[in-house]
Amino acid sequence: MAAQGVLWVGLLLLGVSGVPQTQAKDQDTLQPYFQPDKFLGPWYSVGLASNASWFLEKKNVMSMCKTTVAPSADGSLNLTSTFLRKNQCETRAMQLQPTERPGRYNYHSPHWGSIHSVSVVETNYDEYAVLYTQGTQGPHQDFRMASLYSRTKTLKDKLKEDFAAFCKSQGFTEDSIVFLPEPADKCINEPE
């Protein structure tokens, strides 16, 4: 149970929002001319979709988390997320290693012992970002997740609609898409 919580938090850290011009399935869909310096700063995880069974079981109890993206000296991105877990605020950190393609990163999952590919599919940097993650969980289990990030805790309906359409274009079903509520605590409202 705790391992699943750590996993979804790590994967939640990978998410961001937007609507790609083409499908992420083709592995070539990335934000054109991705600028990591504009991607830095605070984001809220506001939407998720996944094919993982643990996600479908937990999606109704998940809430929004705040993630801060900061640069690392080696060119990687450090993501630090604060979220509510068991009525307490927790913080987790992870590092996305850059690949040869701007906007594509690798994340080593300590839980699964596998590498996940994380792509920034689309972002306007000031309002939303969409991330697409794929890899494996356990022996030969395909894992996919789409994440919608927002600079604010509220989203325009059009962004929600576009994110849902993107998720469906990636093969996610309606019941695997969730928009996360703001937690009833101060975890994501605390100053940086």
Rank of each mutant, 00 (worst) to 15 (best):
W112D: 14
Y149R: 03
Y132N: 03
F172P: 00
H111Q: 13
A146F: 07
S150P: 06
G138Q: 12
A165G: 03
N124S: 06
Y125I: 08
L155W: 07
T154S: 15
G113I: 01
F172K: 08
S114W: 07
E122A: 14
H116T: 02
F143Q: 06
G171H: 07
Q170T: 09
L159D: 10
C167H: 03
S147V: 11
V121C: 03
Y125R: 05
Q141H: 13
Y125E: 02
T136S: 11
V121F: 03
G138W: 12
I115A: 02
T152G: 10
L148V: 06
Q170W: 06
W112P: 01
W112A: 14
D157E: 13
G135S: 06
K160H: 05
G113A: 02
F172G: 03
G113R: 02
Q170C: 11
N124F: 07
E161R: 10
A164I: 07
Q134W: 15
S114T: 13
E127R: 15
F172C: 02
D126V: 13
D157K: 15
R144N: 11
R151T: 04
S114Y: 09
F166N: 09
K153W: 06
A165Q: 10
S147G: 14
A164K: 08
H116G: 00
K156D: 14
A146K: 06
V120P: 02
G113K: 00
Y149M: 03
T136N: 11
S117R: 10
H116M: 07
L131P: 01
R151M: 07
S169H: 04
M145K: 10
N124R: 05
Q137G: 08
P139T: 14
L148I: 10
C167W: 00
L148C: 10
D142V: 11
V118C: 01
M145D: 04
A146M: 15
S150W: 08
A165R: 13
Q137D: 08
C167Q: 01
R144C: 04
Q137A: 11
A129G: 06
K158A: 13
M145L: 15
A164C: 07
A146P: 02
T133N: 09
F163N: 00
V118S: 00
Q134P: 05
Q137M: 12
Q170D: 08
S117E: 15
R151F: 08
E127I: 11
A164S: 12
H140K: 14
K153C: 10
Y149W: 13
T123C: 05
E127M: 10
Q141Y: 12
S117C: 08
K168S: 06
K160C: 07
T136D: 11
H116I: 02
V130Q: 15
L148R: 02
A164T: 11
H140W: 13
Y125G: 05
I115Y: 00
Q137V: 13
L148K: 02
M145T: 08
D157M: 11
V118A: 02
G171W: 04
Q141M: 12
F166G: 06
S147W: 09
L155A: 09
N124L: 08
V120Y: 02
H116P: 00
S169N: 09
T152H: 15
N124G: 09
V130A: 14
D157A: 15
F143N: 03
E127W: 04
F166D: 09
E161G: 06
S114E: 13
A165F: 08
L131Q: 10
T133I: 14
Q137R: 15
T123A: 03
